[in-house]
Computed example of a mutant assay.
Amino acid sequence: MKVLEIKVVYESDDLEKAKKEIGDVFYDFGATGLKIEEPLTHKNSLDYYRDEKEFLMVENAVSAYFPINPYSERRKIAIQNAFDEKFAEREDLVYTVEFYEYDEEDYQNSWKKYFYTQKISERFVVKPTWREYEPQDDELIIELDPGRAFGTGTHPTTSLCIKLMEKNISSNDTVIDVGTGSGILMIAAEKLGAKEIVGTDIDPMAVEVARENLALNKVDEEKAKAYAGDLVSVVQDKKFDVVVANILADVLLILLKDISKVVKKDGLVILSGIIEDKLDEMIRAIKEIGLEILEIKADKEWRAILMKNI
């Protein structure tokens, strides 16, 4: 089977920050592991002297790997665009995105040994399709396979969002997931009892993947529907009991006004994907449009916010 390697070679004033930011983009597209390459900074290794040329050729790079499938070409374009949108105007970082295809014997089976069932909140468990798992007590299972999804629930931004959802979505709620990606939040909403779920994403490939994952989790297609398009054109005048969005803070700031228009009075909004450095700016924007902040959850440098439309 052929495997796609996507490699970002970079130089930056802050190498650790750049490495993390590049990794976060890959994680948003479903990568669950990364290959890190860094040049040797000190000649304190015997290996350096054995093959100095090899060490000198090493660059700062982060790579992610994806099985090649019918979505691969569009995935390449989407990932290239994501890096360009995030870094093209940055003066502190220079980068190139490189693509490689190669054969790996029995890749379809060998890569599976690295992925395990993970509990990401009090109730939700994310399970690869080939793993066996018996739910405990009131656990809820979401099946997602790495490589088929934009986000598999293990990233802090997704788990933070789901932790707030499981405490605040009730039976018969209507829910909209803005920037649905893999559809994982739509699946979670259905398992929490929401009676109607809508997902929107401006990326048609993400919508295809979301629909595939909804079907994989046996979500009724009449109950949960994913649409390609921006929030306003998809929703028009409809309002929802709960609005969820797990997107980067800069995008949330742009969408915040539209999001506030599609939540019912006394309805809830859950926003995640907010890096700690952007939290104060996000709080100011939320207060300006009249939403009441009820809770802020943290995981490492990421934040998620629960608010109410008063």
Rank of each mutant, 00 (worst) to 15 (best):
L93F: 06
V94K: 14
E105W: 13
R131L: 09
E73M: 07
L93T: 14
T129D: 05
Q80F: 08
R74F: 03
Y100S: 02
R75D: 01
E104Y: 12
W111M: 08
D106I: 01
E105C: 07
L93A: 01
F83L: 05
K76N: 04
F124I: 04
I79C: 02
T96I: 08
K127S: 03
T117A: 09
R90Q: 05
E73I: 13
Q80K: 15
V97Q: 02
F87H: 04
I77R: 14
Y116K: 15
R131E: 14
P128G: 07
K76T: 03
E73L: 09
Q108V: 08
F124E: 00
W130F: 14
E122S: 14
E98Y: 03
Q80L: 09
T117G: 06
V94P: 10
F124M: 01
V125D: 00
Q108E: 15
V126G: 05
F124N: 00
I120V: 09
Q118S: 10
D106H: 11
L93D: 06
R75S: 02
W130V: 09
A88K: 15
R131P: 03
E89K: 15
Q108F: 11
D92W: 09
T96P: 01
W130S: 03
V94L: 10
N81G: 02
Q108W: 12
Q118L: 05
V94D: 14
N109Y: 13
K86H: 03
R123M: 02
D103L: 11
I79L: 00
D92G: 07
S110W: 12
S121N: 04
R123V: 05
Q80P: 10
T96Y: 04
K113C: 06
Y95D: 02
K76S: 03
E85G: 13
S72V: 13
Q80G: 05
